[in-house]
C-alpha cells in the first residue's frame, strides 16, 4: 500500500450513501442497500446498510446486525477499539470497529450508526487494507455520509452525476451498457432520471429531437427549447390518460397524469440526460428545478 493516498478522490454516491474511493476502484455490484466495490475483479470494500426500527436499544440492535452479518457473509467478527487518530468531521456518527475473518480472507471493518437518519451501515475492507492514518480505509471512512447534507440527494456512479429532491425514494433502477435509469417516487409523483451514452455516437447525424423520437417513446406534443444554467435543453409538457381521449370523459379525468420531460446533452461527460416527472396533480415547476443535473 502506498503511504500517500491523495488518490482517494473518486466520488461514489448511491441511494443516500456517499463516500470517496481510489480512482481505479469500480462498482462491482449494487442493490438497494448493498454495494461491492472492486479493483480488477478483486473486492476491496463491501457496504450494507439498513434502517433501524422505531424503538430499539443500540447495543442489542448492533449485536443482532453482527450476528446476522456473520451468518450471511460466513465471517467471524471480532470487536476492535477505535483507533486514536480516527475522527469523523460530521457529528452524529458512532463508529464500532471490528476485524473479520472468513475461511479464505480477512480484513478490517466498521459498523456506523447515524443518529440523524438512524441508519446502520456495515463496511468491511478486504485484505491488505489496514486502518492506519491516511490509509485508504481511513480516507474512505472520513469521507462517508449516509444522508444528504443539503436538501438534495447526490447520485454519482457509472459516469452519471445528478441530484434529486430529498423526499424522493428509490423505486427502481437499471444500469445496462448504453442506457441507465433511476426511478424515484414520492407519494404518487414519479421522477425518472435517464441517461444514454456515448452521446457523440448516438447523436451522429441526428439532432436531439430526432434522438428523442427514436429513444423516448410516448412523448407528446412539441418540444420547446429552453436554457438553464446547465445549458440548453428540450422540454415536453403534456397530460396523459390511461387510454386515448380519456380526458374528455368526466369519470376518467381523475386518472389523467401530468408529465414534464426534459432532455439535454452533457457534452463534458459525453452523455444524454433525460428527466421525467409525472404526477396526478399539476405539479410545481420548482420540483423540476430541484432535480439537478450536474455538468461536471
Amino acid at each position: 500500500m502506498l503511504p500517500d493516498h491523495g488518490c482517494v478522490k473518486k466520488q461514489l454516491a448511491w441511494n443516500r450513501i456517499a463516500f470517496k474511493i481510489p480512482e481505479a476502484w469500480e462498482i462491482e455490484s449494487l442493490d438497494y442497500t448493498h454495494l461491492i466495490v472492486s479493483e480488477d475483479g478483486n473486492p476491496k470494500i463491501e457496504i450494507k446498510w439498513t434502517e433501524s426500527p422505531k424503538s430499539f436499544t443500540l447495543e442489542k440492535h448492533l449485536k443482532k446486525i453482527i450476528s446476522r452479518s456473520q451468518k450471511l457473509l460466513n465471517i467471524k467478527i471480532r470487536k476492535q477499539s477505535t483507533p486514536d487518530f480516527f475522527l469523523h468531521s460530521l457529528p452524529g456518527f458512532d463508529f464500532f470497529f471490528f476485524s473479520w475473518e472468513s475461511p479464505s480472507s480477512k480484513g478490517a471493518g466498521t459498523l456506523i450508526f447515524c443518529s440523524h437518519c438512524r441508519r446502520v451501515t456495515l463496511i468491511r475492507f478486504f485484505s491488505n487494507l489496514d486502518l492506519t492514518p491516511n490509509s485508504i480505509p481511513h480516507l474512505v471512512l472520513t469521507s462517508f455520509t449516509d444522508h444528504p447534507l443539503t436538501g438534495h440527494v447526490p447520485w454519482h456512479l457509472f459516469g452519471m452525476e445528478f441530484s434529486t429532491p430529498m423526499q424522493f425514494t428509490l423505486s427502481d433502477y437499471s444500469f445496462k451498457p448504453g442506457y441507465f435509469f433511476v426511478k424515484l417516487l414520492y407519494h404518487k409523483i414519479h421522477l425518472t432520471v435517464l441517461s444514454w451514452g456515448p452521446a457523440s455516437f448516438l447523436l451522429s447525424g441526428k439532432t436531439l429531437p430526432e434522438f428523442a423520437k427514436d429513444w423516448v417513446p410516448g412523448l407528446k406534443g412539441f418540444a420547446t427549447a429552453e436554457t438553464s444554467d446547465r445549458g440548453s435543453y428540450l422540454e415536453w409538457s403534456y397530460r396523459q390518460g390511461p387510454f386515448k381521449n380519456a380526458g374528455s370523459l368526466p369519470f376518467f379525468s381523475r386518472y389523467m397524469r401530468f408529465t414534464l420531460f426534459r432532455l439535454l446533452q452533457d457534452t463534458q461527460n459525453n452523455r444524454i440526460y433525460g428527466v421525467k416527472i409525472d404526477s396526478p396533480e399539476t405539479f410545481e415547476i420548482e420540483l423540476m428545478k430541484g432535480t439537478i443535473i450536474n455538468g461536471s
Binding site: 469500480e26 462498482i27 480488477d40 457509472f158 459516469g159 444500469f175 451498457p177 448504453g178 451514452g197 456515448p198 457523440s200 455516437f201 461527460n269 459525453n270
Partner: peptide
C-alpha cells in the same frame, strides 16, 4: 482485454465499468 477496455472508454468518454461490460 484490459487495455482495450481502457482505450475504448477514453475514446468515447465512457465510465470504465460500462466500457468493460460492453
Amino acid at each position: 482485454v484490459k487495455t482495450i477496455i481502457k482505450s475504448f472508454a477514453s475514446l468515447h468518454g465512457l465510465d470504465n465499468r460500462e466500457a468493460e461490460i460492453s
